[in-house]
Design a protein around this nucleic acid. Structure first.
Length: 252
DNA sequence: AATCTCTTCAACCGCCTCCGG
DNA sequence: TCCGGAGGCGGTTGAAGAGAT
């Protein structure tokens, strides 16, 4: 185990250590964390250095109380993503995954439990019963494969439509957005998927001024299944949210 | 003033995924 | 294809401070 070495220092960081780490990152840049302890002259493991930088030393980190709109966004995103703190934090400028996780566990989770069960143990609580955490899969194609796969996608949709009259759609329903700022490709969402995202945001449960996880009963199972399917492109959730329409859903 | 309990959050741990050899 | 190392993530812990008794 990495942290088991007797030579590696643990516990709270000193100002001197912070300074060494900061200088090292400024000089060599982020990344190559395995080299950072040696470069910085620190008796810390690479993980400890990385965590200290990302959660505390990195510029533009926002500290202090969460604003109402930040809390609102956390709750909305948690409805959709579950405990995927890094993704949630990615939508909160200046906030770290650790901050969001801590905030959820100390403030929001407690509210949730207070309203659902007076006897629940906060440490063991994961989700309300009957709550289905949605893990939507982004559907982004590289430029290289886009044209080929769009045809394939439409063919599949048409085939699916033959088997599912509830989801009649054509290629006209495909929403295409240029994601080239961040990724050399495109993202597309069919009409049902767009509607699903919007519905998810509308089906909020509100308790004590905060929205809580929506019930699985609220979700169209066919759309859920579609989104839960693995995609072949290994793209991140962040890229999905580059779509302007989706972003507007989160920021009405 | 002393002690106990609760809350907060920085940091650690272990697991998973990715990537290069 | 397998293996090992690195990066990254979520769950959990525990020290320190705040508040209650």
């Amino acid at each position: 185990m990495e942290g088991s070495s007797l030579r590696v220092r643990k516990g709270a960081w000193t100002e001197e250590e912070d300074l060494l780490l900061k200088k090292c990152i400024e000089k060599y840049g982020e990344g190559k964390w395995h080299q950072v302890p040696a470069r910085a002259g620190l008796n810390r493991c690479r993980k400890s250095c990385r965590l200290r930088w990302l959660n505390y030393l990195k510029p533009n980190i926002k500290r202090g109380h969460f604003a109402a709109d930040e809390v609102d966004l956390i709750i909305r995103l948690h409805n959709l993503l579950g405990n995927r703190w890094s993704l949630i934090a990615g939508r909160l400028p200046g906030r770290t995954a650790n901050d969001v996780k801590n905030y959820w566990n100390t403030h929001l989770l407690k509210k949730n439990i207070d309203t659902s069960s007076k006897t629940s143990n906060p440490k063991s609580h994961k989700l309300k019963p009957n709550t289905k955490v949605i893990k939507p899969r982004p559907q982004i194609l590289s430029k290289r494969s886009f044209l080929v796969n769009l045809d394939e996608y439409n063919n599949n949709n048409n085939n699916n439509n033959n088997n599912n009259n509830d989801r009649a759609e054509t290629s006209n329903n495909v929403v295409l957005a240029d994601c080239s700022d961040n990724h050399d490709g495109y993202c597309f969402l069919d009409h049902d998927e767009m509607m699903w995202w919007e519905n998810m945001m509308m089906n909020e449960k509100e308790v004590d001024g905060h929205q809580l996880q929506c019930s699985a009963n609220d979700i169209d199972q066919s759309v859920l299944d579609q989104i839960m399917n693995e995609d072949n492109y290994g793209n991140t959730m962040d890229e999905l949210f580059l779509d302007e329409e989706l972003w507007n859903v989160f920021n009405p």
